[in-house]
């Protein structure tokens, strides 16, 4: 079974930089991208435009930004945790924020990890590569 990551990112430049970093370690083909919180929920629960999407039921892990249009990342996370199908789905918060309240709210809502996007591209690429390898290869996810 193919392992995939779902990237929820509304900023096209951050998306391009993330995909570029993953391409360097040959993981770019295992990434799906959605651009707001509603799309993320539709993707995960196979609703609306994603009713017929291909691939496994759930990605191996979700990389979730906080500042998202329509439904923000923390609300997406809360809804995933409230639903028995995605209660245990690994979710990594990947954000510009390093505010204590965002960090607290993320873990409080059941995030598995909280990672700040560095400003420097070298560091950013390294962080993304490490996340990709860890969640796709090292970590053993539950069967959902």
């Amino acid at each position: 079974m193919t392992k995939t990551l779902l990237l929820v990112e509304d900023n096209p430049q951050d998306e391009a930089l993330t995909l570029r970093a993953l391409r360097k370690i040959n993981l770019a083909n295992q990434i799906d991208v959605v651009r707001d919180g509603q799309q993320a929920l539709d993707y995960l629960f196979r609703e609306k435009e994603f009713a017929n999407r291909e691939g496994p039921d759930f990605p191996t892990a979700v990389l979730l930004d906080i500042g998202l249009p329509r439904i923000n990342g923390l609300d997406v996370l809360a809804r995933l945790r409230a639903d028995p199908r995605t209660r245990l789905l690994p979710v990594i918060i990947l954000t510009s924020s390093d505010e204590e309240r965002d960090r607290f709210a993320s873990y409080d809502n059941g995030a598995n990890s909280f990672v700040r996007k560095p400003l420097d591209f070298g560091e950013f690429a390294e962080v993304v590569a490490r996340l990709g390898i860890y969640w796709l290869a090292t970590n053993e996810p539950p069967n959902l």
Partner: peptide, 15 residues
């Protein structure tokens, strides 16, 4: 926070 995203882009793509 909102200024960081475009900054990351400027720095990232120039790099």
């Amino acid at each position: 926070h909102d200024l960081r995203a475009p900054l990351r882009a400027m720095r990232g793509f120039s790099k």
